[in-house]
């Protein structure tokens, strides 16, 4: 789709996962800086969603079907914000673990998105 953006989302998601994993290992909840990090990753995922829809509108088609592609795009965009909301009401290290898990899920979704679009 747009390989640079896919790689950027995946790498930033893994960085976020490592960062929140570190917070969890230090027995800390997610803090303001973590939420800024989540916002950055979410903006990248939103950009990817827009690019994906524009490409579809232009008539380009993913290899493994449009419905699946859109479902994964939306899922990728929602993953980190959803985990962020869960961590807002869980002010312990487990909130950090949740965001780290959410970021890992996003990275996996990026790998799948790459395959669905067709390399």
């Amino acid at each position: 789709m747009l390989d640079a953006l896919t790689v950027a989302v995946a790498v930033s998601a893994l960085a976020l996962a490592a960062w929140c994993g570190l917070a969890a290992s230090r027995d800390q909840p997610t803090k303001d800086w973590h939420f800024i990090g989540m916002a950055v990753v979410s903006v990248l995922a939103l950009a990817q969603l827009v690019v994906g829809i524009v490409r579809l509108a232009r008539g380009e088609r993913p290899e493994q079907g449009m419905t699946v592609f859109i479902a994964y795009l939306v899922g990728a965009f929602a993953a980190v914000p959803a985990a962020g909301f869960l961590s807002l009401t869980e002010r312990t290290r487990w909130g950090s673990v949740t965001v780290a898990a959410g970021a890992v899920v996003l990275a996996v979704l990026e790998v799948r998105l790459y395959g669905i679009w067709g390399g």
Binding site: L86, E90, T92, W94, V97, T98, A101
Partner: peptide, 17 residues
Amino acid sequence: SGPGRVLVWFYGVFTVA
């Protein structure tokens, strides 16, 4: 809550998936 929050996340993801 606590470790259960992580489980809520994973079960939620798998429900959607």
